[in-house]
């Protein structure tokens, strides 16, 4: 029973945070573009805007295309959302503040988050729309290509910490955050951010949404609450990956006063927000690159680079622990 309540609280907290991440992003983007951003709904600074958007989407008409594959079309947003929410089950926000600190935490995270592609493909296929079909063709290409370097970069902290457990990885950073490790740490962090942007499908890798070519890609036929679910899933996934980056590279909850779980969680959220804003910053300053260029970047640059980096990390760890003479 206790676990159910905890899961309920976590679920709602995550959804609330994610809802407000959209607001943060809109304000942040507005600043970059010399605009003000949402301002009208709620004082000060339109803080009720995400709530208003949610209500608007809830009460909108739900349109199902006549030729859609109905079960697939209707299930897709849910299948898309569930993995994004599930990844939070294993994330420790602070010592003792998390649902399940699995000893294979990072493996669980990577495995579940890559399930997302199923929901995405269902959405594109079920819509029976050519734009959506092209979009999911690109999606499968891109996500499979970037899953590999993404996993490889995520393995670098695992090698450094010697554990798959996320809390153990954080504890291993007590002396020095992994991002501060000379050379390896910074390169791995950059590679992680690139792979993150690609796995989140954001500009410059947002070829599946690509609203100037494919209108809205796989979600072109979705409206109302189903659209909201897809949107929520994307932002939840984004937040989840930001949390992962925080755990792997930025020392998780570590910071002044982090012995207390409350402060630890604050530090954790601030760091996750930092990664989120970093990705947002990239998003609003680049143009989208083409599908063949994206695949080329993944297989020709990112994959060899992360492989070499992983090997170098392995050698370094083995050497420093005295296994290699």
């Amino acid at each position: 029973m206790r676990d159910v309540i905890a899961a309920f609280i976590l679920l709602n907290a995550v959804v609330l945070i994610v809802t407000y991440l959209t607001y943060v992003e809109r304000k942040f983007a507005a600043r970059m573009q010399s605009r003000i951003g949402p301002y009208r709904v709620g004082r000060p600074h339109g803080w009720l805007q995400p709530i208003a958007d949610a209500i608007k989407l809830l009460i909108k008409e739900d349109i199902i295309p006549a030729l859609a594959d109905r079960p697939v079309y209707n299930l897709a947003p849910i299948v898309f959302l569930i993995p994004s929410l599930l990844i939070f089950a294993t994330i420790p926000f602070a010592p003792g503040l998390g649902l399940a600190d699995l000893n294979i935490g990072i493996l669980f995270f990577l495995a579940v988050s890559s399930l997302e592609i199923v929901g995405l493909f269902m959405a594109g296929w079920g819509s029976n729309n050519k734009y959506a079909l092209l979009s999911v063709m690109r999606a499968v290409n891109q996500i499979i290509s970037y899953e590999v370097p993404f996993v490889l970069t995520a393995l670098i902290p695992v090698v450094l910490a010697g554990s798959l457990q996320l809390s153990a990885i954080v504890e291993a950073q007590r002396g020095l955050w992994f991002v501060a490790y000379p050379v390896i740490g910074q390169l791995a962090f950059v590679a992680f951010i690139v792979a993150t942007i690609a796995s989140e499908n954001r500009v410059p890798f947002d070829i599946l949404e690509a609203e100037s070519e494919l209108v809205a890609g796989f979600r072109v036929e979705y409206s109302g609450m189903k659209f909201a679910l897809i949107q929520l899933a994307e932002y939840t996934h984004m937040f989840g990956v930001s949390c992962l980056g925080t755990l792997l590279f930025l020392g998780g909850w570590l910071g002044p006063g982090s012995a207390h779980p409350g402060w630890g969680a604050v530090w954790f959220l601030l760091k996750a927000l930092f990664i989120f804003l970093l990705v947002t910053w990239v998003r609003w300053s680049f143009v989208r690159i083409r599908v063949d260029q994206i695949l080329g970047l993944s297989w020709k640059v990112l994959l060899p680079a992360t492989l070499i980096l992983l090997m170098a990390t392995g050698f370094w760890v083995a050497w420093s622990s005295g296994h290699v003479a």
């Binding site: 410059p204 947002d206 100037s212 680049f286 143009v287």
Partner: peptide, 13 residues
């Protein structure tokens, strides 16, 4: 730039 970068990306900037 909007065409290349999208209304939800650097193009919009």
């Amino acid at each position: 730039c909007l065409d290349m970068g999208g209304a939800l990306g650097g193009g919009a900037t």
